[in-house]
Write a protein that binds this DNA or RNA. Structure first.
Lengths: 161, 161
DNA sequence: CCCTTTTACATGACGTGTCATTCAATTATA
DNA sequence: TATAATTGAATGACACGTCATGTAAAAGGG
């Protein structure tokens, strides 16, 4: 068969994403959160007072402007927004106290996921995988997201220009 | 940072899936198909006269019973279904002539994707990636899907038990 | 300063993914 | 053979992810 490895690769990526997302969905259900909502909380926990557009630039789960996603969190009292004083169009968002609490709970659940990953791959294998992934990601819009989120280095502020 | 590689891995998987899906979505738009719809066509092209449940067992894009997905294709004239004679509950689906035509067009688009993947990774790297992915997939429900779809061997019938 | 263009966001639309519920056909069981 | 349990599928519900459109604020050009 032509492209056998390529086809396998393509469906592997899809399956891995689906599997991971389901795992997270189940775990996060006890917090009444979806994986996407949890990612927003994580982003706002790292860098507060972001506009919608900025939040979008830090999300891997979604490209465009995550209006609905963030507004759901506002409605649920986890995030609060204020109109930007310089720009009346923009709103700046931050975690509420309840949101901060949720966020620590989210971290525990993420740790479970990371431990699961650790149980499957050695640190050496993960490095190989991530290195190869980077070759792909570099060619996509996501590259800047990873930099902004500081997901490449252990250093938690190198993405902030 | 704890779990740095694991976190990167997790988001890499998400980003790769999103990037690939967007690429496919754009390409398939000229056929008026979505990636999920294209996967159903591909499955029915490999093995015809499947029930909804069986189609679901061959799909990586979706778990449950893909009623709506398949019915959209029926409505668009790409797939036709007949009630199973042994089991009045079940319907058996196959590609219409129009569906078969679409399917060859889909293959060309998939080939473009595979060539893109080839342009990023060597065959050796793909083998390493797929081998590592398999370690993960083996622990999920998707393992049987890959076997049924014969995505593991070049042999196009080994999954049929 | 007015007018055009751009920008930030909201919203409608559409097709998923996922789960729960419902319904009818089939199988198992008492 | 009645009846109960199971199964295949349809459907409602909900939250996405993506695109297109609309609206108001801001920026830019004359």
């Amino acid at each position: 068969m032509y492209y056998q490895q390529e086809e396998q690769f393509r469906y592997h990526i899809l399956a891995m994403q689906r599997a991971g997302n389901r795992e997270l969905t189940v775990q996060l259900k006890e917090l009444d959160l979806t994986p996407s909502q949890a990612e927003v909380l994580t982003v706002l926990n790292e860098r507060s007072m972001l506009t919608l557009k900025e939040i979008g630039q830090h999300l891997i789960c979604e490209t465009g402007s995550p209006s609905r996603l963030v507004n759901t969190l506002v409605k649920n009292g986890l995030v609060e927004g204020k109109t930007d004083e310089q720009d009346q169009r923009a709103r700046r968002y931050r975690l509420s106290n309840q949101g901060k609490q949720k966020c620590t709970a989210v971290k525990q659940i993420e740790d479970r996921l990371y431990k699961h990953i650790q149980s499957i791959y050695t640190e050496e294998e993960l490095k190989i995988l991530n290195q190869l992934f980077t070759k792909y990601i570099e060619q996509t819009d996501f590259h800047s997201v990873f930099r902004k989120r500081s997901l490449y280095e252990g250093d938690p502020d190198s993405g902030e220009l």
